[in-house]
Amino acid sequence: MHISEGVLSGPVLAGGWALSAVGVGLGLKRLDYDRLMTVAILSAAFFVGSLIHVPIGPVSAHLILNGLLGAILGPAAFPAIAVALLLQAVLFQYGGLIVLGANVFDMAGPAVACAFAFGPLLRRAGKARAVGAFCCGFFAVLLAALLTACALALSGEGFVATAKAIVVAHVPIMLVEGAVTAMAVGFLAKVRPELLVHAPTR
């Protein structure tokens, strides 16, 4: 879901940068010094996650992990994803530097939105938390796909067809990410609850 250089129109690119700058700023403001390493580690997970291809029949799609970052980091997922995408653009030539703003917002916006939306569920224990984490992983990818389609639609591609193509191709990834997020959050809540931004209330 990295949008390539030269596809988006000027206003969309500028809008992406503006929204991303605000998101990164707010994320950094809310970032606690003690959680710095958690953010860096998850940023690394996001950076490498896109290299892990999940074979689904003849096609393969890669993990995105934005929901996982949202569920664990909350607003701090924004800077984490921004840095990881910057490194992917520079080192892997995925996306590009000019479209970075739009790509960051497409990925990190849904992550943080899901973290807020499912926060109450994540704070509870047991099944509620698992469901919340699954939804976080699932909907973060879905929203990211829709935002990507939106950005493309604003730059001239038809929205419905593009959105359909992107969403349909990502349905398996949504399910996989939901499961991964549910497992990761469940595991962390058991062994290292202090790592979670939505620390479970006991």
């Binding site: 879901m1 990295h2 030539q93 193509a165 992107i166 990502h170 349905v171 398996p172």
Partner: peptide, 28 residues
Amino acid sequence: NLILNRMKPVAASLAFLAVLAAPALAHR
């Protein structure tokens, strides 16, 4: 969760069929 887990293979295979028609999505 149990129901969700049981549904997964079904949903995944449905999605897989749909994906066949869709263009592959990659990094670049």
